[in-house]
Structure formats: C-alpha cells, structure tokens
Write a protein that binds this DNA or RNA. Sequence first.
DNA 1: CAGAGTTCGTTCAGATTTGAACCAGTACTC
DNA 2: GAGTACTGGTTCAAATCTGAACGAACTCTG
Lengths: 152, 152
Amino acid sequence: MTETRWLDPTEMAAWRAFLSTSHLLERRIEEQLKSAAGLTHPQYEILVRLADAPGRQMRMTELARGVVVSKSALTYQINQLEKAGLVERTTCPSDDRGVLAVITEAGIQCLRQVAPGHLDVVRAYLIDRLTREELESMTTAMTKTEQALRAE
Amino acid sequence: MTETRWLDPTEMAAWRAFLSTSHLLERRIEEQLKSAAGLTHPQYEILVRLADAPGRQMRMTELARGVVVSKSALTYQINQLEKAGLVERTTCPSDDRGVLAVITEAGIQCLRQVAPGHLDVVRAYLIDRLTREELESMTTAMTKTEQALRAE
DNA sequence: CAGAGTTCGTTCAGATTTGAACCAGTACTC
DNA sequence: GAGTACTGGTTCAAATCTGAACGAACTCTG
C-alpha cells in the first residue's frame, strides 16, 4: 500500500486543461461536421484514413485501431457510410475472414467538399493559436502517450 | 471562395497525435474507472468537481459546463449517482428553478478510494512521461484553445 | 406590475458506443 | 493432418449522449 501520488498544481493544470480542451474541441468539431455534411467525427476520420490508404482501402480491424473505436462501433459506422454510398465492402483476397472497406468516388468527393470547413475549425481553435514551438512540443508529448497506450 | 488552407506536416502531426491520444487515453481511463469502481469518467469528474466546490455543491448548469457534457447528459448522470447514493439533489435557495447537486459523505468516501488508481493511470500514460517544459507548454497551448471555445 | 425574452432543469426520441457472445477462418503444434 | 488456440468481423443488449421541446421561474423594460 504505497502513498498516493497526487498531482501538484502544475500537473493538475496541465491535466485539467487537456481534458476540458479535448472535450470542448470534440464537441465543436462534431457540431461543425454535422451541420455542414451530416457526418459524425468518426465517420469523417474513417473517410480520411481510407482516402489516404494505399488502394483507398483498409481492413476493418486496422481501421478501427486507427480511428480508435471498438470493432462493433466501426461495423456500425461502415454500415452507415455504406448506406450513404460513401464506402463499400470487399472481401479480403488474402484472408477469407477479412473485410476491406473501400472509399467510393462519392466518398472522395464528399471529403473534398467537407475537409476545408473541418480544417477551418481545427485551425481556428487549435493549430493557428499555437506557436511552432508549442506545436512541436505538443507532438512529442502526445506521441509519448500514444505509443505507451498503443503498446497496451 | 478562398483557397483551402491544408495542414503542413508539422501541423498535421500535431493534430493527429492530439486526436489519437485524447481518444486512447479516454478509453483507458474509462476502462480503469469502470473496473475499479463501476464509475464512468463523466461520473468521476462530477464527483471531483463537487468535492472541490464550496459547500460540496454546484448548480446543474455550471456543473455541466465544467464537465463539458450536455444538460441532459448531466441530468442522466446525476440520476445515476443519486441512485448510487453518492450525490443528492437540493433545491436552490436563491432560485426556485435551480437545482443544486451535493456530494454525499458516501460520495466523498468513494472518491477517496478511487482517486489513487485513477491518478496512477493519468500519471503512467501522460503526466510522468512529460518534462516540466512539455507540461507547461501543453497547459498554455490547451488553455488558449479552451478559452477560445468557452467564449463561444 | 404586465409582458417579452431568458434561463433552468427535465423529458423524450433517436443515434451511437461498448463489451460479450458468437461463428468462420487461420495459424500453430505435435 | 488433427486439434487447439487465436484472430476477424458481426450481432446483440444495455448504457450513454445529444438536441429539441417543454414548463416553470427569473429579469428587464416601460
């Protein structure tokens, strides 16, 4: 039974700021995407990742890991995007269990149309408010945590 | 129709790292709190804020703003916490519309018991991995965004 | 003090998320 | 090659979140 290590004021300020900001920004982004294109943020991220992927396609599990949602949430969202004609499913040639999500031409078009407004928000509230040093410091800090968490 | 301002590699790296990390950390925290105490992260945050508040109580709307959830989500969570005996509702003496959420003694005890394990996670994946400079840089960066978003 | 406009909190319907359970296919191991 | 263990994706029930609609109470004018 070791002593509890509380956060000192500097640590607490950092943690609180991070927590509030991530939630506030998430809400703002969600609102913008919804009103501009009827997309949720996870849906948008799925499209971005697929568009960037070689062959514009990705395995379900890999995609879920990238976007950071559960496998079942991804299944649900891919269903939604499929209904909307922005994504299609293909069976994976190398693994019969596998499913490949592929972004359609309509999906690419949708992304092209939505991305500017989305990036405006990301810039207006986050990126453009930070100095180059802050930007880089944030990347190294976030990357440390990301790697630790991805390593499980 | 102005030119779209894409993110350069440094900006993109910062944004992607922030996004993934906040989601990964959120998931990890949620998992820890659930298994350790059957609490969700919002519930934990509600308890913390109430415990820190003068009189251990807070108005619903103020609390919702602090925790960054919708008013209806807060109503729901306060109901849950009330069922669990960790929080009580009081009518606000100065405003008949108002409702004060008050943390109970059981709520305080719960918090005392849960906080160490929660802080261990926050430390292990974020705080303890950052230098003092990174911590401070993150605070200034996050605070800029937070203020911009809170100003609406 | 009447009335318009706000603000407070709840209720409601609908959308989304999660983890557990499950089946199908793959990969080891002997 | 049979057997066991693992991985991939879907389905399911339950929990939670959001915005819109609502009634009640406050505030500010005139």
